[in-house]
Computed example of a mutant assay.
Amino acid sequence: MTTIGSGLNMLFSLRSPSITITSYVAQLIVYPVGLGWDKIMPNRQHTTFGVKWNLNPGPFNFKEHAMIVIMANASFGTGVGYFTDILQAQRGFYKFNWGWGFGVLVALSTQCVGFGLAGLFSRWLVEPAPMIWPQDLVNCAFMYTLHDNSKTDPARTNGWSISRYRWFFYVFLGSFLWYWFPGYIAQFLSVFAFPTWIAPNNITVNKVFGGFSGMALLPLTFDWTQVTGYVFSPLIPPWHAIGNTLIGLVVFYWITSAAVHFSGTWYADYLPFSTSSSYDNTGKYSIISSCFYTNVL
């Protein structure tokens, strides 16, 4: 599961907007797999070099499920590793390929640095009871939902009598059917920049309201992947965390960046407001590899 999840995250990270396979997906998929393993695999005791082992020692339980989720969260829970950005930039932009050995060492070094810092600061960021990560609360609630087979009590659910599984199925089916519209049938719903439709040839309007190369002053979208592509689900973090992000967006992007761009500083007015491309001193697309000669800057 960790290998498949990591591979899918690597594949979907190249998509725009990117899709992240989180530990919630693994938590959901593993549950029927574990129950099926319990039903299919024989309960037989084996001995190898004096060590006894069994492929089906007992029913799939809460602890086994939690251990799988922990492993999935540690390997691909927050998306691809940051080292993939280095390898992609080297091969895609700079045309460098230093082999698989370099990639493995970069992956191990960056991941070990992250886990090492987590261990150093665990006394302040992990062990105290108030240090609760919102994502973990979703995992806990989801875990109890899957393993609690009791019927819904309307007295405790504000009158709701629908079961958890039935409600999940309705939401899943609705999400699946709806995504065909912004994803394929009506792609304008993905980036709903309607002011640019009114004045498609107005450069200023496109810079201010454009969703791809502008500042997106009215960031409307009907595509959930646009919402969760880079900041994950807004339903998980508390409101003050979202408010902090919104303040940073307004101050540093809508105000500061707009002031720098439209004032002509560094000839920014000749370039798109938002872009991932590189340009030369004439405003044309710049090929990064042309800055190198025999792999030397």
Score class of each variant (00 low, 15 high):
2 T>Q: 05
2 T>N: 09
11 L>H: 13
12 F>I: 03
13 S>C: 08
13 S>P: 05
15 R>F: 02
20 T>G: 00
23 S>A: 15
23 S>D: 14
24 Y>W: 11
25 V>E: 15
26 A>R: 00
27 Q>E: 14
27 Q>M: 15
29 I>Y: 12
29 I>W: 02
30 V>P: 01
31 Y>G: 05
32 P>L: 06
32 P>C: 07
34 G>N: 02
34 G>E: 02
35 L>R: 05
39 K>I: 15
39 K>G: 10
41 M>Y: 12
42 P>T: 01
46 H>C: 07
51 V>Q: 01
53 W>C: 10
54 N>R: 01
54 N>W: 02
56 N>F: 06
62 F>N: 02
67 M>G: 03
69 V>F: 02
69 V>R: 02
70 I>W: 05
76 F>M: 06
84 T>W: 02
85 D>R: 00
94 Y>E: 11
96 F>R: 08
102 F>V: 08
103 G>K: 14
110 T>L: 06
111 Q>Y: 08
113 V>D: 01
113 V>Q: 07
122 S>I: 11
123 R>H: 05
123 R>A: 10
125 L>D: 12
125 L>K: 10
125 L>Q: 12
126 V>D: 01
129 A>R: 09
130 P>V: 12
132 I>W: 10
133 W>R: 09
134 P>C: 05
136 D>R: 08
137 L>C: 09
138 V>F: 09
140 C>F: 15
144 Y>M: 15
149 N>K: 15
152 T>Y: 07
161 S>G: 04
163 S>F: 03
165 Y>N: 12
165 Y>D: 07
166 R>C: 10
167 W>P: 03
170 Y>N: 11
173 L>H: 04
176 F>V: 15
177 L>M: 14
179 Y>N: 13
185 I>P: 09
188 F>G: 05
189 L>F: 04
192 F>P: 06
192 F>M: 04
193 A>T: 08
196 T>H: 04
196 T>M: 05
196 T>A: 09
198 I>G: 00
203 I>H: 00
203 I>S: 00
205 V>S: 00
206 N>W: 02
206 N>T: 03
210 G>M: 05
211 G>C: 04
213 S>L: 08
213 S>P: 01
215 M>K: 13
215 M>G: 07
216 A>I: 06
220 L>F: 15
222 F>V: 12
225 T>E: 11
227 V>I: 14
231 V>L: 07
231 V>M: 07
235 L>N: 11
235 L>M: 14
238 P>L: 03
240 H>C: 01
240 H>Q: 07
242 I>M: 09
243 G>M: 04
243 G>S: 02
244 N>Q: 06
247 I>E: 00
248 G>Q: 10
250 V>P: 04
251 V>A: 10
252 F>Y: 11
255 I>T: 12
258 A>D: 04
258 A>R: 15
259 A>M: 14
263 S>L: 11
267 Y>T: 08
268 A>Y: 02
270 Y>S: 07
276 S>M: 01
277 S>L: 03
280 D>A: 13
283 G>W: 03
283 G>N: 11
284 K>H: 10
285 Y>M: 04
286 S>T: 00
287 I>Y: 05
291 C>H: 13
291 C>W: 14
296 V>F: 10
297 L>V: 12
